[in-house]
Design a protein around this nucleic acid. Structure first.
Lengths: 210, 210
DNA sequence: CCGTTGTTGTGAAATAATTCACTATGCTGG
DNA sequence: CCAGCATAGTGAATTATTTCACAACAACGG
């Protein structure tokens, strides 16, 4: 229990965390596993199992369910949400800009410290209020600003090169929106979000009836 | 073998398909499972296993590897990529527009037949060349145009209502970019792409060292 | 004070997915 | 024509994940 949390469980715990944050703002103080499961579209078993992965102490007491505030803190502590992360966005095209402007993408603990693009004079980015640097400065700027996470939204042809620069600058995680598979040393975590593929997968699932 | 393809295999097969399409354009005619695996970042075993899921006839012959054209057609046939799908985009904010303008998102077989937004007079959408309708007409337009897939990029508060309208119009698959979990009858496939969550998950993975 | 109810936590079973090991086969070079 | 080799296909083993079943426990009502 102490050490390993299965990857799907990490993903669900993140969702639980965000849900708890919202509930907390609404003034909810207690919540049951079945209610959480209902809201997240997964079984109550699953919720309990996930939560049990990160417990050294008990989180829920007796009948009432989980204490929202306490569970939130438990997840945050175990998954590192208390640490501040600095992030950058590489590629300020339509998608990159849309992500930057979506304040919810970067929670209160993740700050956009820099943007990179081949075209530095983008009006939109100035409006978004982030500092923009040319792509060839990625390594240097990333290292100087201690950026640890990167969002990669460049054309496929440039993806690997930008990734190399990011890694050289010391980035530890890359959220890859490119349709390319990028290769890095294993210490750098890459998470692929393949928008192109998702619709195709959906059409296949519809066609097959899952 | 005939019937069920595991969901992760479907996702990988879609990726293989797109790769094959690119290879085909480059004039490659033969490819081995190990080369495919290398390019996609998965093991050769995995590739072979996935492909074996959709075979009634053999796809690769002897030494040379797979015939690119034939394998592409095999996947297309089995996963329904020959059928034309009509799609719509609900919510033409920054993200919705970015997706619409990304021609690669909608492959040659998926056509954007309509867009919906509360504000119909968006200049950008006119430039994008799609017909825009007000949100309250979703059900009717979707049914009239025979739209089967929907991309949902509205604010969380409107997500469930839009989904209901889509379903009422006869949509069979929804790609949900909302951070809400939407509930539908089980015949409608929903695929969630939680951009908000992805960065958080990445930060957790980095923090935990996977 | 005690049964009843609704809840968590968790070991164990079941299911799903990946990885492996091996056979068969066609291609290639000599 | 034959030996050697690189490859696909696949049943079996392994691993991962989900689901289940139930024990333990706190609150509540009478």
């Amino acid at each position: 229990m102490e050490n390993k949390i299965p990857l799907p469980a990490v993903a669900r715990l993140c969702a639980i965390y965000r849900l708890l944050r919202d509930l907390s703002l609404q003034g909810v103080t207690l919540i049951s596993s079945s209610a959480l499961g209902e809201m997240l579209g997964v079984g109550a078993h699953n919720i309990r199992k996930d939560i049990s992965c990160l417990m050294e102490t008990e989180a829920g007491s007796g009948k009432s369910g989980y204490d929202v505030k306490r569970l939130k803190e438990l997840i945050a502590g175990r998954l590192g949400f208390d640490n501040e992360f600095r992030a950058c966005v590489v590629g300020l095209g339509r998608l990159g800009l849309a992500l930057v402007r979506n304040e919810r993408l970067f929670g209160e603990k993740i700050r956009v410290a820099a943007g990179f693009d081949s075209d530095v004079n983008l009006v939109e980015t100035i409006k978004a209020g982030i500092d923009v640097y040319p792509s060839y400065e990625i390594s240097e700027v990333v290292r100087r600003l201690n950026v640890e996470l990167a969002v990669l939204t460049v054309p496929a042809a440039n993806a690997q090169e930008c990734a190399n620069r990011l890694v050289r600058g010391g980035v530890r995680g890359i959220l890859n929106f490119t349709s390319t598979v990028i290769k890095t040393e294993p210490a750098v975590k890459v998470r692929n979000v393949d928008l192109t593929g998702e619709l195709q997968i959906l059409s296949a699932l519809v066609y097959l009836g899952i």
